[in-house]
């Protein structure tokens, strides 16, 4: 199955399509709301373009270390999912937990850096 979690170019295309369709419509609270949603998409894209490549590189390095194999980032992510699902990796392994924690924090820095959970994580991690 093709990977379908929203990619940067899909978010951007969705937001642009909205603005395009909105051109002829009257303004309303609903439209204002959807405009804000579309803007949120664009802001995520902006952060992803800025921070994504470094974040991916770090994630890739952690996964190669954790899994002990060489492959592309998507392939390693799938392999990690497989190992967790089948319990081929110990769930209490600190290296696994650190990796997941780092991944969560980095992804959230792109998706919603204002989210309270990120601040809680940064406090916890010190």
């Amino acid at each position: 199955m093709a990977e379908q979690h929203p990619r940067a170019e899909q978010l951007l295309a969705g937001a642009i399509a909205f603005f395009a369709s909105r051109a002829a419509a009257d303004g309303s609270p609903r439209t204002a709301y959807l405009t804000r949603v579309a803007l949120t998409c664009l802001q995520i894209v902006e952060r992803e373009l800025l921070m994504g490549p470094d974040s991916d590189r770090r994630q890739h390095a952690r996964l190669r270390q954790l899994l002990g194999i060489e492959a592309s980032l998507p392939e390693l992510e799938l392999e990690l999912c497989r190992r967790i699902r089948s319990r081929d990796i110990d769930l209490s392994d600190p290296q696994l937990r650190c990796h997941l924690d780092d991944t969560a924090a980095e992804q959230l820095s792109i998706d919603n850096p204002k989210y309270s959970g990120l601040h809680a994580a940064l406090s916890r991690r010190g």
Partner: peptide, 24 residues
């Protein structure tokens, strides 16, 4: 095709961070 459905997909990261915060 509603952009709010698309955007909410990127909120998965919030739930994942909350999960890690609780487990750790």
């Amino acid at each position: 095709r509603s952009v709010e459905l698309l955007a909410v997909g990127r909120r998965t990261a919030e739930a994942e961070m909350d999960l890690m915060n609780l487990v750790l």
